[in-house]
Each structure stands twice: as structure tokens, then as C-alpha cells.
């Protein structure tokens, strides 16, 4: 008698992507993200009210009950500073990897922390500075600070580095959609050369190239969205290619490619289509979305002055 369970295969090995910290600790659905942001905000607001009350007891200076900012105000406020990160990257001529990594750190940090306790103006610089180290584009701290408007002192910067690192769980590796996108470009090229007659190649390659350039812009925009949390880099890369194909009259060819590439696994193709459509919609929406107005950010800033946690203020008696 053969025991069927005796041959039970050992647990399947995890997929490569399942091994990275980005998947293990920073993957959330859109619903989870919203829940988490609300929760972090409510907890922070409670801490602020408690600290303000305690401070009042100590100093005997009456203070108004703080009106805390909401989770979506924080999100807007952070998005405003994400634009600033991009601006600094252009100014300091950092490449897209430094930019995307800094943005990912910023998003991860403020997913679990509040602007009422940690000032995004300081943390955006810290994200950038650590990203230059991680992405092998390091510049000296002195040079970096010279180029930053209202820069903190070097000593403070070091403290910020540790604080940020803790907030991102010391997980510095971030995977971006750029490499997968490039991989798909090569794969689609292969597909074209193996399935189309030679005279058609030149024309199709040109179309693909135009499509790819547009997709690169989309991929760069994707780093500003929550796709970083919700989708895998390869899904984002391919989704960007799909969005670009729709714009650049290449959709038919890309559909054929997808069908031929995944025809053996139909249910997976269906799932993939859903993910790709979501990505394509999100990147197109992001590229038409106006940047957060300075006034809107200023309004949050003003409100923020009334609800900063005094425990995080070095001048507070607490």
C-alpha cells in the first residue's frame, strides 16, 4: 500500500517576489491602506489631545482644544511634499531611481506616522539623502544641505536618518517598475520579430519605441501613486505599457502579445487583465491630475499649527 500523504511534496518554494520586504511588509490593498491611514490618524489625534492637556496642566497656560487634521488632509499635504521631492531631484540632478526610492520611503513612513508628530519638510530631505546612499548616488552631506532650502543642521540630519530608518523598518531595498518595463519592451520586441514578417518590423519597432517612451513617463508618475503599495513592480511596468499603447495606437499588437504570452493560463490572464487595467487607469488619472495647490497645502499647514504634538517639540516642557 502506498500512503498518498507520504509523497506529499514539501511546501512549494516561495516565488522570488514573495521574498522581498516590499511584498512581505509593504503590500496593502486600497481598502487596507485607507483603513490604516484612518487608524494611524485617530491614534495620533488622541495622543495630541492628551499631550496638549498635559502641557496645559504643567504650564497653566490655557490652550484651545486642538482641532486635529484628518487622514485625507494628511494625504493631500504629503502629496504636496512629494512634488517637492521631485523638484529637488531635478535641481540636484538625481536619477529616477533615487527619486522613486525617496518617494517610496516618504510614502511608507507616512503610512504609519503622522505629520502632527513628524514634519514632512524635514523628512522629505532625509528620504532623499538616504535614497542617494542606497541607490549608489551618494553626495556629501555638506553639498546636499547647501542645495536644500532651509536645511536642518548636520547633527539633526543624523537623528532624522535614524528616525526615518526605524519608520521604514530598516528596509531600504525598493523595487521600481522601470526594470520590468524595460524587460517587457525587450520581450515585445522578440515577440514581434518572431511572429511578424520582416518588412513589418521596422514600422512596428518604431511604434513600440514611441509607446515605451510614453510608458516610462507613466512609470515615473506611478511612483507618486498608491500603486507602490497595491501592485507589483512588474504589473505596474506592464500596466504603464498598456496605458501608453492605448494612447499610441499600439493596443492591438500588445493585446496579441499578452494573449500569446499567457494563453496557456487563461485564468491568470483574466486576473492579470484586471490588475493591468487598474494600473493603466491609475497612471492615466495621475498624469492628468493637477498638482496639489500651494493654497491647499498652506491651509493644512495652518491647521497643523494648532494640533502639533507638543511631545515632539524640543521647547515644550513635556
Amino acid at each position: 500500500m502506498v500512503d498518498p500523504t507520504a509523497e506529499a511534496s514539501p511546501q512549494p518554494l516561495p516565488e522570488p517576489y514573495e521574498q522581498c520586504s516590499q511584498y512581505r511588509h509593504w503590500k496593502h490593498s486600497a481598502a487596507e491602506l485607507q483603513h490604516l491611514r484612518q487608524k494611524v490618524n485617530l491614534k495620533a489625534a488622541a495622543r495630541v489631545r492628551k499631550a496638549v492637556a498635559e502641557q496645559q496642566e504643567l504650564t497653566r497656560i490655557p490652550a484651545p482644544e486642538p482641532v486635529c487634521i484628518t487622514w485625507d488632509e494628511q494625504l493631500q499635504y504629503c502629496q504636496y511634499y512629494e512634488e517637492r521631492i521631485r523638484a529637488y531631484c531635478r535641481k540636484l540632478q538625481f536619477d529616477r531611481f533615487v527619486e522613486a526610492t525617496a518617494l517610496a520611503y516618504f510614502k511608507r513612513f507616512y503610512l504609519r506616522n503622522t505629520v502632527m508628530e513628524y514634519d514632512p519638510k524635514l523628512y522629505l530631505m532625509t528620504c532623499l539623502f538616504i535614497a542617494t546612499k542606497v541607490e549608489s548616488a551618494h553626495i556629501s552631506l555638506a553639498t546636499f544641505l547647501e542645495n536644500i532650502h532651509k536645511s536642518p543642521s548636520p547633527d539633526m540630519m543624523i537623528e532624522l536618518e535614524f528616525s526615518l530608518s526605524k519608520g521604514i523598518r530598516y528596509e531600504y531595498m525598493v523595487h521600481h517598475p522601470f526594470w520590468p518595463l524595460h524587460g517587457f519592451l525587450l520581450d515585445v520586441q522578440n515577440y514581434i520579430s518572431s511572429t511578424h514578417p520582416r518588412p513589418a518590423h521596422e514600422h512596428l519597432f518604431q511604434k513600440l519605441q514611441r509607446c515605451y517612451s510614453r510608458a516610462e513617463q507613466f512609470a515615473s508618475n506611478a511612483t507618486l501613486t498608491d500603486l507602490t503599495f497595491t501592485h507589483m513592480p512588474s504589473q505596474i511596468g506592464l500596466g504603464c505599457l498598456l496605458a501608453a499603447a492605448r494612447e499610441r495606437d499600439f493596443e492591438k499588437e500588445l493585446e496579441q502579445y499578452l494573449a500569446s504570452r499567457f494563453h496557456a493560463k487563461l485564468d491568470e490572464l483574466v486576473k492579470l487583465r484586471i490588475a493591468l487595467d487598474a494600473v493603466a487607469d491609475a497612471v492615466v488619472a495621475q498624469s492628468t491630475k493637477p498638482p496639489i495647490a500651494k493654497e491647499a497645502a498652506a491651509a493644512v499647514f495652518k491647521k497643523l499649527q494648532g494640533c502639533l504634538n507638543p511631545e515632539f517639540d524640543p521647547e515644550s516642557p513635556l
Binding site: I130, K133, V134, H138, S140, Y170, E171, Y172, M173
Partner: peptide, 21 residues
């Protein structure tokens, strides 16, 4: 090199080991 904040080879080692299991 304290003047440049957290040591970048330390960051690099941590970065790599976090991913390799």
C-alpha cells in the same frame, strides 16, 4: 565618516540582508 551621517556601507549591508533569506 560621521560627517555624512549613517554609514552607507552599513546601510548597504542591511539593505541586502533584509532581502536575502
Amino acid at each position: 565618516e560621521y560627517k555624512d551621517g549613517m554609514d552607507k556601507s552599513a546601510i548597504r549591508e542591511v539593505k541586502v540582508l533584509q532581502e536575502l533569506k
